[in-house]
């Protein structure tokens, strides 16, 4: 496994910057507390952005806020995003670094971001490939793992991964 510092911590690093999502279409299924974005989906929060073709946003009732009786409507005061699930080719970029994978999950509850399937992580010219990348959203540390071997391609003269 290979670990390195990345800027992906921006994603949900703090819960007080707004998240912007753009897509062709959106379907909110209130009963199952999910919202599904389809078509050129872009999620942005501060410097980090995630692009995919289909994104499912899972809401969770906010434990602190008082629960309203009955299931809460689509964007009520007391619901917040607990998890984003992107499937259908994911591109993640954050100040100069980018990562791609077949699918990805951003879990705001346990503060992790994971990309899996044909994963590549490129940073200042260095490219790492493997099966999965998991990023700790608090520290920004990324771990690339692979069943076979993690391949690291360091470009000469590229900045050392700090």
């Amino acid at each position: 496994a290979q670990t390195l510092q990345t800027g992906f911590a921006d994603f949900g690093s703090d819960q007080n910057t707004p998240i912007e999502i753009e897509a062709d279409a959106l379907e909110v299924q209130d009963k199952s507390n999910i919202a599904v974005f389809t078509g050129n989906v872009t999620v942005r929060q501060k410097e980090a952005s995630l692009q995919t073709s289909r994104l499912t946003v899972h809401y969770a009732a906010n434990p602190q806020a008082p629960r309203t009786d009955g299931d809460a409507p689509a964007t009520p005061q007391n619901q917040r995003i607990s998890r984003l699930e992107a499937d259908g080719k994911v591109l993640l970029t954050a100040n100069g670094q980018s990562a791609t994978g077949d699918a990805g999950t951003v879990n705001f509850d346990d503060r992790t971001l994971a990309l899996n399937g044909n994963v590549t992580l490129s940073q200042d010219g260095n490219v790492i490939t493997g099966d999965t990348i998991t990023v700790n959203l608090d520290t920004g540390i990324a771990r690339v793992e692979s069943r076979s071997r993690v391949r690291v391609l360091l470009s000469p003269g590229g900045a050392k991964s700090n």
Binding site: Q15, D24, A65
Partner: peptide, 15 residues
């Protein structure tokens, strides 16, 4: 069930 089409842009404020 709410379906929005024709281009959607959303800003979700922090909880």
């Amino acid at each position: 069930r709410i379906r929005m089409t024709g281009g959607v842009s959303i800003v979700i404020n922090p909880a």
